[in-house]
Computed example of a mutant assay.
Amino acid sequence: MQAAPGRNCEHGDVVVVAGGDQPDLTCLAQLAAAATVIAADSGLDHARAAGVHADILVGDLDSVTAGSLDAAEAAGTDVRRFPAAKDATDLELALDAAMSLQPRRITVVAGIGGRLDHLLSAALLLAAPRYAAVQMSARIGPATLTVIRAADRLRGVPGELVSLLPVHGPASGVVTTGLRYPLNHEDLAAGSSRGISNCFAEPVAEVRLGAGVLVAVSPGVRPEKEDLL
């Protein structure tokens, strides 16, 4: 196993392992090494496959395998079972459980693919106002999502794509450095494609905004020629 039950979250980091398609197991193991781990339903199977102990298991448990559930209970995982007829997704329940720990940072780890409605819901959920007190990000397959509320630094390889998407309303006064196409106190309207397909000019880019929320999406690929048109 990657770590023993009951380990301390020394730096205030919580990793939430989503259900659905299997994520990058190497990435999951690395992120979980110094974090408290919360599995959302069949996210427990992914944690087990990565050799990671889940401190908390949350959800209606309709998709986790019996073997993983039995092993987790034997290892001391805190199992929090919810009815199938509930008003929140397993991921939302897991994020709420993470917030109860008062962490500094929450990172969601998930696989790419699956249902489009789940993917869109998850992206919007990460930027919800009630999670504003923590640094929120996600690794979804090869992509990285970072929620930016006032300012943040993004890391990538020069030439790597990154998009800045306003969510839950417009983002105003956006300033960037380290990107090929800089923004200088610009406003991004909700639903606009203005921030799509920028790319890193330097290994570290900075993004600041006066108001609103941005989701920075680094899909983990370099642009094709047509992406720059």
Rank of each mutant, 00 (worst) to 15 (best):
Q2G: 11
Q2L: 14
G6A: 13
G6Y: 08
G6K: 09
E10K: 10
E10T: 14
D13R: 15
D13N: 09
V14Q: 08
V14K: 08
G19L: 01
G20A: 09
Q22E: 15
P23I: 01
P23M: 06
D24M: 00
T26R: 07
C27R: 15
L28E: 02
A29T: 02
Q30M: 05
L31S: 05
A33K: 00
A33P: 00
A34C: 09
A35Y: 06
T36L: 11
T36A: 09
V37G: 00
I38D: 01
G43F: 13
R48M: 15
A50P: 07
V52H: 10
H53Y: 12
H53D: 06
I56R: 10
I56L: 04
G59Y: 02
G59S: 02
G59W: 07
D60L: 07
D60F: 10
D60M: 11
D62E: 14
S63V: 14
A66G: 08
G67P: 07
G67V: 11
S68F: 06
L69T: 03
D70F: 11
D70I: 07
E73M: 09
D78N: 09
R81W: 05
P83W: 10
P83M: 03
A85P: 00
A85I: 07
D87N: 13
D87E: 13
T89F: 00
E92P: 06
L93V: 01
A97F: 05
P103W: 00
I106N: 01
T107L: 06
V108N: 00
A110L: 04
A110T: 05
G111F: 06
G113K: 02
G113D: 09
G114Q: 04
R115D: 05
L116N: 05
D117W: 12
H118N: 10
H118M: 04
H118W: 06
S121G: 15
L125E: 07
A127F: 11
A127S: 14
A128M: 14
R130I: 08
Y131H: 02
A132R: 14
A133T: 15
A133Q: 15
Q135A: 14
M136Y: 05
M136F: 13
R139Y: 05
G141W: 00
G141M: 04
G141D: 01
A143R: 00
T146M: 03
T146A: 04
I148Y: 07
L154A: 05
R155Q: 12
V157A: 14
V157L: 13
P158F: 09
G159F: 11
G159W: 09
V162E: 06
L164V: 12
L165N: 10
L165Y: 06
P170Y: 11
P170T: 08
V175T: 14
T176F: 06
L179R: 04
Y181E: 03
P182L: 04
N184P: 05
H185A: 10
L188V: 08
G191Q: 06
G191E: 05
S193T: 15
S193N: 11
R194V: 13
S197A: 15
N198Q: 11
C199M: 12
C199I: 10
A201C: 03
P203N: 08
E206F: 10
V207R: 00
R208V: 13
R208L: 13
G212Y: 12
V215F: 11
P223L: 03
P223T: 04
P223I: 07
K225M: 14
K225W: 15
K225G: 08
D227P: 07
L229P: 08
